[in-house]
Design a binder for these strands. Sequence first.
RNA 1: GGCCCCGUCGUCUAGCCAGGUCUAGGACACGUGCCUUUCACGCACGCAACACGGGUUCGAAUCCCGUCGGGGUCACCA
Length: 498
Amino acid sequence: MSVRTRFAPSPTGYLHIGGVRTALFNWLFARHHGGQFLVRIDDTDQQRHVDEAVTKILDGFRWLGMDWDEGPEVGGPVGPYFQSQRHHLYRAAADQLVASGHVYRDYSTDQERAADKALADKEKRPYRFRRKEYTAAELAQFESEGRRYALRFQVPAGRVLVLNDLIKGPVEFSTEEIGDFVIVRPDGSPLYNFASVVDDLGMQITHVVRAEEHLSNTFPQLLVFEALGAPLPAFAHIPYVAEPGSRSKMSKRKLAEYEKQGILVYLHQYMERGYLPDAMLNYLSRLGWSFDASQEIFTRPELIEKFSLERVNSSPASHDQDKLFWIQSEWMKSLPLEEKVAGCLPFLEREGVVHTPVDAETCSRIEAVIQALGDRLKVFSDIVKLGRYFFSETMTYDPDAMKKRLKKDGVPQMLRELDQVLAEVEPYDLATLEKVVHDYSEQSSRKIGDVVNPLRVATTGQGVGPGLYDCLYILGREKCRARIAQTLETLAQLEQKG
RNA sequence: GGCCCCGUCGUCUAGCCAGGUCUAGGACACGUGCCUUUCACGCACGCAACACGGGUUCGAAUCCCGUCGGGGUCACCA
């Protein structure tokens, strides 16, 4: 039988790192075995359904290149793929379980249950709902008055259930720990532990790979599979993702705090910043999984080939932005120039310094800048921070660089001389530029650094950047001279102010 | 609180199932140095962990028990 996995998000908002990783493991496992990966939207609780959220999740998958064989937008033979549209299937399964006696009508009221629970708490024993025995007369009465009831699963007493989890290993759980649980509300809507089983069964899921918060939930689900007379899928429970530098789980409540610390926990935040899908995929796969003692960089095909659930860690992993950043830089290094250009373009456009469609001249300028930037460009959005001054007419000075390189005796005079050098250099190309600046340094008996660094700040405003000659060349003679003039003026003004 | 899962450098991890080859390996981050016009890259070196306590054994990171810590679950949430 072909392997079938599924990712079943509740459409409440953006996907965070942990959720994406769970989906990825499902996808990798399915692809590794040449099986199918399905997406199902778990929206049994209507309040959880946010239309936009489904699109956001799918956009994230598309961006990562995680294709789904069945699910929203693509359909499939065992749909619908929204739980909210599968009520007839839950109804049928519930009817079957009522008929087989596994499920009964529970007429209890909120007040009764609250009282039972309070009593249990008071006696310091765990509260477990158990079937209440009613007389025939009482039942008749309930029915005649149209009293509402929930459908509950009657949990067998005194059994020990065993789950052979692919990641956690064998786990035992006594049915004494499980209260009779509701599978259908009085209004007919199904609950997760029931709907999930009906769907996994109906969709012929062979491997349920999901977050470990579901580990305890698995046992009631096991009972439902059994009652339905269905074969069990295999289960693999993946540990949670902890916040950076900690073993504590990432919490939605701490979102504001993460933001303040510059910690990004949502996939879309990385998409927006210009990370590479391949890098993200690589990072996510290594978070809680390893192939051997040394390999860090994996291509997509390698991941599919080498992934296995056996090598997923059973303990939590914490999100490590530094590692992600490093993997990203590794992938960026090997990205072809034209793809870098394509990736940077949206950021330049948003910044308003180039306009699409770009003409040939602008395009080659972008190429030149990216080439000059080299490995300094780690994520696409860096093009703005690192390369803005190549495109923009105006130049702003980095205060530290200004102080360190320009506010020194003799600098204005040197800049005037260098301006003359630039005015006369012919041809205005990389090699000649380098030669004349070196010659100038020798003739004026200045250390090369004392020439290059002020000139860099005078023409780019920044203390760091690509090699100076690259900068001078890309900027062009006129712009360089104009900026030197601007710098001299700025320095003169500062001088006056004292 | 009951039950369940988890615990190797700051972080990702190898080693654990089949105890000795582990004075615990790799990577990120960090520190130092080299290269160098800055930064980045690259190279070299360094810092740094078996949560704790018992037991089993000739021998334990590896097996067992306990403690502590983290997480989950006990809903007519998913």
